[in-house]
Design a protein around this nucleic acid. Structure first.
Lengths: 302, 302
DNA sequence: TGGCGACATAAGCTGGGTTTATGAGCAGGA
DNA sequence: TCCTGCTCATAAACCCAGCTTATGTCGCCA
């Protein structure tokens, strides 16, 4: 379920190059300087910023013969732009790792949730530390991760299941919790007293399909009783349905961080249900990670 | 301080139009269908997806004479892409509100932090509820917000200060907390026992310049004692310095949500310091918000 | 076997972004 | 006072990515 207003974003939002340029201008205080940094000419930068201002209908930059500073609106726009660029950086580092390169110095296998939400951040941090470590990424469920590690197709794995596959050593790197969320309008959103397990089990919920990691943990915690209101096949579809007010849902804390911060969803306290699960780094028994794998591992644990 | 690896993102990350197209393909299971939804022709969609695959070096969709499904890598890429597109949607709705349109049905004035982190989400929610409410936005400090409300240039305001400007009624819509953060490598990151106020006051911190809202709250909490290690002029610059390990910093919870989730920063517990502040909606005394202003207000309170 | 739906290919057009080349405003030093 | 160096703006020519229209191929189904 996409947001309402159709009409292609691509025509209303400046492209990534323009946003990067704007950030550079903000940082350097000069169009020409920003141009130099991005390896284009000054007129190109000038024209690009100008056309961005035309597109948005807002003056972004105060030009003077001694440099350029952001207007108030420009500062705000730049902050919003930064969020797009950061998401793009995460995309970039992830996509680069997805290309199978046989010569990669670090081959990672990870479960979907971890690959989706956590890995890009780690890879960015890793690249900051060791810029020339080539990383390759393979995403799959716990079984796939175990296979790749045991057949020496991966150097380090990440899993989120309840148990550790045999033949692997592991260390807990983070604790994920499933949390009950609703749209802000829902009656549960105003609850002060925590929800009892029975109430949760007897209420139809928006859920991932059976077999997903999230669903497994929830079913285990409730004793296989979770009643689906709708079953959807992606975390994002579930989130969208919950945000739109279709009903309560149970989702990984990782998946809903932003929605909670923006109050598009609110968390409902629960008691008497074990909704925590460990996220673990794994490797073949005895083969303690070394080199780049050790670097990445240490990043994930802080 | 930007991330390391220079080399313009714009060339390595598909543009927004392509990402939107990919999301549409994921949702509809068909190139042609996605093309129709975005108002382009089927060959255009086909070629665009193909060139995106060339650019990323990864097969994203499995084409068949009966439709298209995402590959595993495609699913992952799509999830990362979705984060970019969501950031772009927030940008779009914010930018639209920045254009001064005199005929706006709802004129909002907000402080920077709120305009930056919270408002786009609210405006997206509002647009979902009332698609044709034209919103205009003006960002400034508490004084500016008060002026605009009292001179009837704004219908609803949002402030984050310690006190409510005179002449305005208000309601608390959220609680923001300043938190102490460090890069994961810092000694404080491993602390179990909370930091004492004295320790915080005597340690040089990465801070916004004097006069910023964040700094005011911190100085008040510590009794004007905060020692700056560096003073920077934007929240983002402060975050970047903290992430890079330059030292500990004190920042709004709102500003570092993502960094905490990705463990690029970790929060350090503190005791004996009042770092909470209220975020408030404000309006001229007696003029209780009605119409669109009331709608927006109710969104912000859940 | 004809028809339909989905994707691929080919050819031609258009526009946005780029470059090079040049002009114009403001500052600071001889 | 004038030159030099920084800034940004403008103009003309170029190039390529992405679009459209037109057509071809493949598999399914009646």
């Amino acid at each position: 379920m996409p947001t309402a207003g159709a009409g292609s974003l691509g025509h209303r939002v400046p492209d990534l190059g323009a946003l990067e340029l704007l950030l550079a201008v903000a940082r350097l205080g000069s169009l020409g300087g920003a141009a130099r940094e991005l390896g284009i000419t000054q007129p190109a930068a000038s024209s690009r910023i100008r056309s961005m201002e035309r597109q948005l209908g807002v003056a972004l930059v105060d030009r003077s013969p001694r440099g350029s500073r952001l207007t108030d609106a420009g500062a705000l726009v730049t902050d919003w732009a930064r969020r797009i660029v950061e998401a793009a950086e995460a995309f970039d580092v992830g996509a680069q790792a997805l290309r199978d390169r046989r010569d990669s110095r670090l081959r990672v296998a990870a479960s979907m949730t971890i690959a989706e939400y956590l890995l890009p951040g780690w890879l960015l941090a890793l690249r900051a530390q060791r810029p020339d470590t080539a990383v390759s990424l393979h995403a799959g469920n716990s079984t796939v991760v175990a296979e790749r590690l045991l057949s020496d197709e991966a150097d380090l794995g990440f899993v989120e299941g309840l148990s550790v596959p045999t033949g692997l050593d592991s260390v807990v790197i983070a604790h994920d919790r499933l949390i009950v969320v609703t749209a802000p309008g829902h009656p549960w959103a105003r609850r002060r007293r925590p929800l009892a397990a029975g109430e949760l089990a007897s209420t139809p919920l928006i859920l991932r399909e059976k077999g997903s990691g999230t669903r497994q943990v929830l079913d285990a915690a409730l004793g296989g009783l979770a009643r689906p209101l709708i079953e959807l096949s992606s975390t994002t579809a579930v989130k969208a349905a919950a945000v739109s007010g279709a009903g309560p849902s149970v989702l990984s804390e990782l998946a809903v961080g932003e929605e909670l911060a923006m109050r598009r969803l609110v968390s409902v306290p629960v008691e008497g249900v074990a909704l925590a699960r460990d996220l673990r780094a794994v490797w073949p028994t005895g083969h303690r990670p070394t080199g780049p794998a050790r670097d990445l591992l240490s990043l994930t644990r802080g």
